[in-house]
């Protein structure tokens, strides 16, 4: 059991703020993919470090939860470590790096490689919740576009990529249609992770602190990456096995290892890579 920091409410936020977040979360689950405005609070870390995700986690977290936090798939980066420690201190919850034992996983820009279960909640840190933001700068206008399900401009954007490059050149934050109704930004997860959004057994919650929006995908919800019949969605992956665990299916990080052009491709999901190595899988560079 962790020592709880005295002088703060459970999980840092005051109860009125949590109720506001909880009401927004319930509506978000009832309207999959629709962005709900909320009164984002100032948190003890700057915007861009996961304030939206932290507020969502603080609103759902209970004393019996086991929290895992990943940053680009890694449990051991500054952002992941400090958020995990933040909740260990303010809520006294157990933390873990093991995907299977976590009940709440807060993530920045990845979905774990191991499939998630019905007993888990995945909380995304979202920098830009509006998928149409680069096509239409006015939030008033994009709100209307969502109301009318007017998503032609996004199809044009994909089409322009195809005419210019021969394929859709969006490698992360690839737009999806949720439940056949709302166009949604899946946060900057690689397009490689997009298929995992579809019919996921776990509840997915998205929090954007600076942009003050919350949205959600309930379990077992239809999520389709936007594409064309003659140019179906295709998730890319670096054509290498993981240098440490040899996985040929995981999403890889490219690491420069010397100043002579040496490169190492390793799993971005550190828990997945470590679990495989513990099970005896060995890559060429291990």
């Amino acid at each position: 059991m962790n020592e709880i920091l005295q002088g703060y409410n459970f999980a840092y936020l005051d109860e009125q703020t949590k109720r506001m977040l909880r009401r927004a979360l319930l509506k978000a689950v009832a309207i999959p993919g629709h962005q709900i405005p909320f009164g984002s609070r100032e948190m003890p870390l700057p915007y861009g470090w996961g304030t939206g995700g932290i507020q969502v986690t603080a609103a759902v977290l209970g004393p019996n939860d086991v929290l895992k936090v990943i940053d680009q798939g890694a449990d051991d980066t500054t952002n992941a470590v400090s958020i995990r420690r933040f909740f260990a201190k303010t809520a006294g919850v157990a933390t873990t790096t093991d995907t299977a034992t976590a009940t709440i996983i807060q993530t920045r820009h990845r979905i774990p490689e191991f499939p998630l279960s019905e007993n888990q909640i995945l909380v995304y840190q979202v920098p830009q919740p509006e998928p149409l933001s680069k096509l239409e700068p006015s939030r008033g206008e994009t709100r209307r576009m969502h109301a009318l399900a007017e998503y032609g401009s996004m199809h044009v954007r994909l089409y322009e990529d195809i005419t210019r490059f021969g394929h859709v050149a969006i490698s992360y934050d690839y737009p999806v249609m949720v439940g056949g109704r709302y166009l949604m930004a899946p946060s900057p997860i690689p397009a490689f992770d997009n298929p995992k959004l579809h019919m996921m057994p776990a509840l997915q919650l998205f929090g954007a602190g600076r942009e003050k929006r919350i949205y959600a995908i309930p379990p077992y919800t239809n999520v389709r990456s936007l594409d064309f019949d003659d140019h179906p969605f295709c998730a890319g992956r670096a054509p290498h096995p993981c240098g440490l665990c040899g996985s040929e299916t995981s999403y890889l990080d490219e690491v420069v290892v010397d100043n002579k052009g040496g490169r190492l491709f390793v799993c971005s999901d550190t828990d997945y890579c470590e679990t495989r190595r513990a099970a005896g899988h060995v890559g060429a560079d291990a």
């Binding site: 949590k18 909880r22 319930l26 689950v29 509840l203 379990p219």
Partner: peptide, 9 residues
């Protein structure tokens, strides 16, 4: 709240 969230989800 968690019960209601799970019930809604």
């Amino acid at each position: 709240f968690r019960a209601v969230l799970d019930a809604m989800a």
